[in-house]
Amino acid sequence: MQIKHAGCYRVAVVMVLGMLACHTNTRPPVPGWPEHFGFGKTATARQIDSLNISIAPDGKGLPAGSGNAVAGKAIYLAKCAACHGETGAEPTPNRLVATLHDTARTKTIGNYWPYATTVFDYIRRAMPFNAPGSLTDEEVYSLTAFLLYRNEIISDTLQLNAVNLPLIEMPARKYYVNDDRHGGNEVK
């Protein structure tokens, strides 16, 4: 289901872009330069798919599969606890668990991360530190569920998937603002 859905979406995006391309131009060419140098090769859909692991905060890019906190706990203990502590709330520099109301000053998923999709994306691309890229999508969903559960954001029974993960509201999201420094004679 998920794969089909993603595929349809991709086709739709390509169509929309194709239509818009007819009406639009990018930037003016550099005088004396050709419109295209012709260096490089067109990327095939297969080549793009093999590299494209992006996940957007609206969930675009999330793979099929699902997982829950119970399954996640077992994986966490086996593959993550060595650096992050048995519960994730230990006072290590790699602490992952603390709610907004916790007195801990460490930045954690519960008190600092603004998007739940980022948890999935980061675990999948970079963890565990000694074997990055080794987890299955199911394992990543399970670990994400476990960490969100431990941070009191979801229940331990929620089966996390591509549909409900981006809908999760993260506690710290409301604090995020865009950079307002602009140079000039002010300190911000």
């Binding site: 905060p57 998923i109 991360w113 998007y115 994306d121 980061y122 710290a172 604090y175």
Partner: peptide, 24 residues
């Protein structure tokens, strides 16, 4: 849209006044 990766959310952002977190 921005992708809201780990390095631009949980890292490389800074807390400022009123509990705000400045991003990008």
């Amino acid at each position: 849209q921005p992708f809201m990766t780990r390095e631009e959310t949980s890292k490389y952002t800074e807390t400022i006044r009123d509990h705000k977190i400045r991003q990008f």
